[in-house]
Design a protein around this nucleic acid. Structure first.
Length: 222
DNA sequence: CATGGGATTGACT
DNA sequence: GTCAATCCCATGC
């Protein structure tokens, strides 16, 4: 269980750690606007272990990345445009955008309204609705067999396909759904590591990716 | 209005 | 390891 949490130093917070894990959320509750309204690195780290639900399917978050308007890998870096306006809206808003013309990528808008920041959800451990996920992911994707559970949601484009999260969710509320994220920590808190973000060409050295290192459902080893 | 780049994935060599 | 698929939107002419 948690040990000596009271001795954690403030410098950990600057690295995205928290001295008061999930202080703003109770077990099983939908995460609040206050949870998302904090520094994006804190939120990205604390979302590890929480559960995304949509359309009868759910999965535990095992991998995230933080994006902030102050660094050029973030879409909000260029300022407010028709595309990026959602990133500056209320904390707890869903930002969904299309990547490579094919995949919908799901983010949770963070920090107070007016600051462009979001956490990209990169991988889930499937929990509920697994058969439904297999249907959505399997047809037309694998020639010989349905995807193993391990690969159902092991990437940002895979998990949106598995949970049927689409562009129409962009700008929607994660507080009221249909997509929600709950604070449902497992009995054993995950061991979390930070590393560099995947698939970007700017600000490549920031270690703003967070993984449950012991998970078997990551997009890549943490 | 034309162009180009991307927070990716799956199939194939 | 390579590569095509293919949508949205920012930018520039």
């Amino acid at each position: 269980m948690a040990v000596a949490a009271t001795q954690r130093a403030p410098r950990n917070v600057a690295r995205g750690e928290s001295s008061d894990r999930l202080a703003h959320a109770h077990q099983g509750e939908v995460l609040s606007a206050e949870f998302y309204a904090r520094p994006v690195l804190e939120v990205a780290r604390e979302l590890i272990g929480c559960v995304v639900e949509h359309d009868g399917c759910s999965g535990r978050i095992v991998e995230t990345e933080a994006y902030h308007e102050s660094e050029p890998a973030c879409h909000a870096f260029i300022g407010v445009t028709p595309r990026t306006t959602v990133l500056f809206q209320e904390p707890g808003t869903a930002y969904v955008y299309r990547s490579y013309g094919i995949h919908a990528l799901f983010n949770a808008v963070c920090e107070p309204a007016g600051i462009g920041a979001a956490v990209l959800i990169r991988a889930l451990e499937p929990l509920e609705g697994i058969e439904h996920m297999r249907v959505r992911r399997g047809v037309g994707c694998h020639r010989h067999e349905s995807p193993h559970d391990r690969t159902l949601c092991s990437g940002p484009g895979k998990l949106t396909q598995a949970l049927a999260i689409e562009m129409s969710e962009n700008g929607g509320s994660l507080l009221h759904g249909p997509v929600v994220i709950r604070a449902e920590q497992p009995a054993q808190p995950p061991r979390i590591a930070s590393s560099t973000r995947i698939g970007i060409t700017k600000a490549v050295d920031l270690k703003w990716r967070f993984c449950a290192v012991d998970s078997r459902h990551l997009s890549r080893p943490g």
